[in-house]
Nucleic acid binder design. Structure first.
Lengths: 225, 225
DNA sequence: CTGCAAAGAGGCGGC
DNA sequence: GCCGCCTTTTTGCAG
């Protein structure tokens, strides 16, 4: 009797190598010792001995061809190509994984927005939710609402500590689009940013363009409800 | 006689583990087999057997403490913490790298912009360069120029294949700021986007706000000059 | 597939 | 340090 276990393997090579990438840009990684990770879905990573980011990589779905001293990786659909010239292989081993548990995240912006949708009073009194990820011509509004007068109120939610100026213009862009929609029958639209904090230039931009701001963090919202 | 070689090492563990991250969010990576990479600068990566991105990570500069069956990684400055519970270690080895060559990239936006700065004629005739990364109140303009009439012309350069609507508003934001600067003595400012391609909504937005567009890619610019 | 925005984004350059 | 923005961003989601 056999028991079939869904097994996934990855190959890990530590080698002195030269790597060339061509596709979205052209890049050459000069001779050095690197960790090369080849995953079973075609993803490839080239890591140096320091630094968080990989020096080179190829996406999942890549095709891999091996010749002596050379690993070719291709992603034809985007015309990307990676060549790993192996000068000296220090180690080369396969690792078989039989178990792959999920990654569970708590506290993302989506959650913040979900929670805020049922506590609109924390933003302003007498707001009614019209839609989440409400679609406009120029992108989705986090929380589309109307106030007691039936005027549209666009709410943009950010979870990041420091929010930059570009957000004021993101909000203005949505307001511009919402202002052109017929369903509001010409009533003026307002915009409100909800975030834990602002950059100084953003503070100025919000004032200049008469955009609202409510200081609120995910932590504050969860602990107070 | 001793020869001192600057050596950099990284540790590579393949293990069945549970990982908990707390800091910017809270996350739990459930029991599974993962590749754990610990670099000599404190960077830590947790990779599953598939997928390009690490499931968890910690930045370079992190502090690492090891106990039996547990690796604690901390980044106190940002109050981030990672705990790796090692249930079963399949392999654990150190890799010493003696050589670390540079990564040389060709074709980034900076280069595109540099090249365009000396070939302004490809954008429009009779433009004069005023500055690169020209600072305004709301962010840096890629190429600040003036036309033959002394009117300011803001040029935004994008290298990506498909550019989204938000770029039209980035340009409008710069135009708004430039329009308030005294040095132009009230002359009207124009904006031009240079990119290889546009999304359909962006095409509409550029027309609606009377922004210019020049279709040009890094490849085209290099081959034609 | 297109289009847009979030990400524990990371990393760079300027001030 | 703050601030804005580019990235071979990657990833996810909706129409």
């Amino acid at each position: 009797m056999f028991v079939l276990i869904y097994v996934r393997a990855m190959r890990v090579i530590f080698a002195r190598c030269i790597v060339r990438y061509t596709g979205r840009i052209d890049a050459e990684l000069e001779l050095g010792d690197r960790l090369i990770v080849v995953k079973d879905d075609g993803a490839v990573l080239i890591h140096a001995t320091s630094g968080l980011q990989p020096k080179n990589w190829m996406p999942a779905g890549s095709d891999l061809v091996e010749e002596p001293g050379l690993i070719r990786v291709e992603f034809p659909r985007r015309d990307e190509r990676l060549e790993i010239y192996l000068i000296q292989v220090h180690s080369d081993s396969d690792h078989v994984g039989e178990l792959s548990g999920r990654l569970v995240k708590l506290g993302s912006e989506r959650e913040f927005s979900d929670l805020l949708a049922v506590h609109l009073g924390r933003v302003e009194e007498n707001l009614t939710l019209v839609g989440r990820e409400y679609r406009t011509r120029v992108g989705p509004v986090d929380l589309m609402t109307v106030d007691a007068d039936g005027c549209p109120v666009v709410i943009e939610v950010k979870r990041a500590r420091a929010v930059g100026v570009e957000v004021a213009y993101q909000l203005l862009r949505y307001l511009h689009a919402v202002g052109q929609e017929e369903r509001w029958e010409g009533r003026p639209a307002r915009g409100i940013l909800v975030a834990p904090g602002l950059s100084r230039p953003l503070t100025a931009a919000l004032a200049e363009h008469q955009l609202g701001f409510v200081r609120l963090s995910f932590e504050k919202l969860t602990e107070a409800t």
